[in-house]
Design a protein around this nucleic acid. Structure first.
Length: 860
RNA sequence: GCCGAAGUGGCGGAAUUGGUAGACGCGCUGGACUCAAAAUCCAGUUCGACUCAAAUCGAGUGGGGGUUCGAGUCCCCCCUUCGGCACCA
């Protein structure tokens, strides 16, 4: 009988579903394992062949570990909010909910068709109000928290109020400090506004990336993706929700050190956080009481600071500007305001305007001009720099263009003509109180910082590139932000008990025409009366970004049906952290940074017990088209999993995706390759099944030959080890070797063959179940104990030892394992080939490694 | 420009701590079965030289140096590809 994958696969998928084979309980007396796939965005296009790669990998590991006695949590769900569904709704006026459901159905069907062992009772959907109720709940927890700098953690906002009532602003980093008494005298609105600036979720008027065509703002890290797709993005100031991820810069950096993640991903996160050490230095402004604070990584070059630059948006610009320069300044500010940071970067030529004001270099006492220029960014450091053109390329370029003074303060040796940016020996750097001359750069830094600290002109400082997370989108299809703007100008968080705040249904999904989301058009929903105060209120019309739902979905899988908590604490303690997380590397800095941030907040507030959610992370590589180019509709090289499964079956599809190469590598699809593993499965089938579809008579209860038994033990060992290390390609090779040998046997020892079925079961579960049944078993392979191997029986009895002359292989001999050195030497010199080389030659050295080689070094 | 990863047959890819380069699969070649084909099975397959053949020899893991008895693996320089960042003071 032929290997009829279609009926076999249907049969077993139905069996698993009916028997709930892969349901996992939360109180099993077994070691736990939480293996998570990044849940997909269910696009209209359906699954592509890239999805099953990671899914199959984790599925194999899960099936294997179940057989090894683990309780395995392996869930799947849908990250279903997002722009594509809404854009589709704008064109067709079909509600995103409808298309989303349709797409999810397709995805679910396709994923089930691959025989993946998910516990479907834990399926979650980020667009389900029962789910986003808790996304909103977490938002409120974040909103109602502040970051206590002394404890370096988030705490409930009430603790801040208590602190202010007891001690005023003592120990808080604020511009205008006040006492506890002064706090008590403040009005409700004043208190509200003051507290607002400490919340981990806050509203700010900032320049954002506005995309007119999409009708929404985009986070900095999203801009590239959409500009690549041809959308144009402009810079404009808008009121937006922000999340204070920057408070966690240091912890995100620090805790990453303990993660077992791909180096490149850790590196990307590190770069994104962008920690740099230096000093804050205060410059006095001539004739004004205001100071300009700058951040520099090279305080040792302070004597060489010959001018200053403020970002065009810097608040002090108006103060330092002289009347006659104002017009030029306004003009310049207008020009730069609309440019995105990207555009600013593209323009090579430096631009800028003199403000007319002067600052005082604190080391020399000399007046230096203050300029504004867009090469200084408001979002980084203090938005102002001290310019040292002698030792900074950008400052040099600017100084040359505008004819500013250049002083050398670091000796870069005799050959340095231009700008010298490296470490060197300080020169021209002395005043009456301090001298850096002769000091190396690190020493000079220490010395000048000590001097600055003594004079209270500066201090050691650390700055991060990481910016706060722009959290609002002008979208309909996202989680509503559970906040109301009251008519007295205060913000009010919706009571937890009123969650979920559901999306109102809309007739049309077109952008509102303003910068508000389409939700603004749902006036009944937007306008409310606050029950508590009777004040009129207006709901926040922005929604959350797509990342919100995926920030915590891994926690919901633990307790998906809980109506009283986002996740029960005991279950959380049992299952977390995630032992393996697999998904695309495109999320290296977005999802993976945001969810770490949320997790840390939840940890600080004692809702979760771990510092980090994802202990071990791996990325699956991209699967290219058969032509080794990126799969795309326009190239016509897209491979559809449905077609592959129809033609060769899910087991073949799974096996091929794993056999292609290392999981993390980028690799091209190959139909021939699928045929190859399909042949393997056919051979596997024929190994057991005869023409009548019965168990073949070659399978017999007999002892295996020594050679075959050895290969068996080697195979059990290698397959297990390889799965543990996610090296599925080599595990499959080993099974092919075993199969090739088994095929040659007239009589196949039943016990070994049965166990071989179990080895293959995680990879090709359908066919394995079918054969297992034919072998007379009544239970699924899913919880059969994984075969054991005997290390002693893996060893070869005879080994081939290489005989080398001067490191070149000249002969080979077969000897018993562990033949002693002396014996090997004797055998080597007896070898006729070796004799030809050694005869009449001087033997300089003999290197003899048992079981490996004999290397004879000869001279003339 | 900076950071990270990777370069192995015709192709995808294997190779513990430095110790037989090319496992396994694809493709290709030859053969068996067949009227024929498909499927299947068997044998061969890094390149080159000499051979009827075997045996043997030479070269060989992006390029060039180095360490070592011995390098795909370690060190230095360079080239290419991919991914990320991009005036970050």
């Amino acid at each position: 009988m032929k290997y009829d994958f279609l009926s076999i696969e249907n049969k077993w998928q139905e069996y698993w579903e009916r028997e709930k084979t892969f349901r996992v309980l939360d109180n099993e007396k077994k070691p736990k394992l939480y293996v998570l796939d990044m849940f997909p965005y269910p696009s209209g296009a359906g699954l592509h062949v890239g999805h099953p790669e990671g899914y199959t990998a984790t599925d194999i590991l899960c099936r294997y570990r179940r057989m090894k006695g683990f309780a395995v949590l392996h869930p799947m769900g849908w990250d279903a909010f997002g722009l594509p569904a809404e854009r589709y709704a704008m064109q067709t006026n079909i509600h995103p909910k409808v298309t989303t459901e349709r797409n999810i159905d397709t995805f679910r069907r396709q994923i089930k068709m691959l025989g993946l062992s998910y516990d479907w009772e834990r399926e979650v959907n980020t667009t389900d109000p029962k789910y986003y109720r808790w996304t909103q709940w977490i938002f409120l927890k974040i909103y109602n928290s502040w970051f206590d700098p002394r404890e370096r953690k988030a705490r409930p906002i009430e603790t801040l109020e208590q602190k202010l009532a007891a001690h005023g602003t003592k120990n808080l980093n604020v511009e205008h400090s006040f006492t506890a008494d002064e706090w008590k005298r403040k009005t409700k609105k004043e208190k509200h506004d003051f507290i607002a600036q400490f919340r981990l979720a806050y509203v700010a008027e900032i320049p954002v990336n506005w995309c007119e065509a999409l009708g929404t703002v985009l986070a900095n890290e999203e801009v590239a993706e959409w500009t690549e797709k041809g959308y144009s993005i402009e810079r404009r100031p808008m009121r937006q929700w922000m999340m204070r991820i920057t408070a966690y810069s240091e912890r995100l950096l620090e805790d990453a050190k303990e993660l077992d993640w791909p180096i490149s991903t850790l590196e990307q996160q590190r770069n994104w956080i962008g920690r740099s050490e230096g000093a804050d230095v205060v410059f006095a402004v001539k004739g004004k009481k205001e100071n300009i604070r700058v951040f520099t990584t090279r305080p040792d070059t302070l004597f060489g600071a010959t001018y200053m630059v403020l970002a065009p948006e810097h608040p002090l610009v108006d103060i330092v500007a002289s009347p006659e320069q104002r017009e030029q300044i306004q003009q310049y500010r207008k020009e730069t305001a609309f440019k995105s940071e990207l555009e600013r970067g593209i323009e090579k030529e430096k631009t800028g305007v003199f403000t007319g004001g002067y600052a005082i270099n604190p080391t020399t006492g000399k007046e230096i001009p203050i300029w504004i220029a867009d090469y200084v960014l408001m979002g980084y450091g203090t938005g102002a720099i001290m310019a040292v053109p002698g030792h900074d390329n950008r400052d040099m370029e600017f100084a040359k263009k505008f004819d500013l003074k250049i002083i050398k303060v670091v000796d870069g040796g005799p050959d340095v003509a231009e700008c010298f940016v490296e470490d060197g020996i300080a020169i021209n750097s002395a005043n009456k109180e301090v001298s850096l001359n002769g000091l190396s750069t690190p020493e000079a830094k220490k010395t000048i910082i000590a001097w600055l600290e003594k004079k209270e002109l500066g201090k050691l400082a650390v700055t991060y590139k990481l910016r706060d997370w722009l959290f609002s989108r002008q979208r309909y299809w996202g989680e509503p932000i559970p906040i109301v703007y009251l008519e007295d100008g205060t913000l009010k968080a919706i009571d937890e008990k009123e969650l979920p705040l559901e999306l109102p249904s809309l007739e049309k999904f077109q952008p509102s025409g303003t910068t508000e989301s389409p939700l603004a058009l749902a006036t009944d929903w937007v306008n409310i009366i606050d029950k508590e105060t009777g004040l009129k209120g207006r709901r926040e019309t922005n929604t959350m970004p797509q990342w919100a739902g995926s920030c915590w979905y891994y926690l919901r899988f633990i307790d998906p049906k809980n109506d009283t908590a986002f996740c029960g604490i005991e279950k959380e303690r049992y299952w977390m952290p995630i032992d393996l997380y697999v998904g695309g590397s495109e999320h290296a800095v977005l999802h993976l940074m945001y969810s770490r941030f949320w997790h840390k907040v939840l940890n600080d507030l004692d809702y979760v017990g771990t510092k980090e959610p994802f202990l071990k992370l791996r990325h699956q590589g991209i699967i290219l088209g058969e032509d080794s180019r990126k799969m795309s509709k326009s190239r016509g090289n897209v491979v559809n999993p449905d077609d592959v499964v129809k033609e060769y079956g899910a087991d073949a599809m799974r096996l091929f995706e794993m056999f292609m190469g290392p999981l993390e590598e980028m690799k091209p699809w190959s139909t021939r390759g699928v045929e190859g593993v399909f042949r393997f499965l056919n051979r596997f089938w024929r190994l057991f099944v005869n023409e009548e579809g019965k168990l073949g008579s070659a399978i017999k209860d007999v002892e295996a030959s020594a050679d075959f038994e050895r290969l068996y033990h080697q195979t059990v060992k290698k397959v297990g080890d390889d799965i543990d290390n996610l090296r599925f390609n080599t595990a499959i090779s080993q099974m092919m070797i075993f199969l090739n040998e088994a095929m040659k046997l007239e009589i196949r020892p039943r016990k070994l063959m049965e166990n071989f079925v179990l080895l293959l079961a995680p990879f090709a579960p359908h066919v394995a179940e079918e054969i297992w049944e034919k072998l007379g078993h009544t239970k699924s392979t899913a919880y059969e104990p994984w075969p054991m191997y005997d290390e002693a029986k893996c060893a070869e009895s005879t080994v081939e030892v290489v005989l080398q002359i001067n490191g070149k292989v000249r002969s080979k001999i077969a000897v018993a394992k562990d033949t002693p050195v002396t014996e090997l030497e004797l055998l080597a010199f007896k070898d006729t080939n070796i004799k030809r080389y050694t005869d009449g030659k001087r033997i300089i050295k003999k290197i003899i490694i048992p079981n490996k080689l004999v290397n004879i070094v000869i001279g003339n």
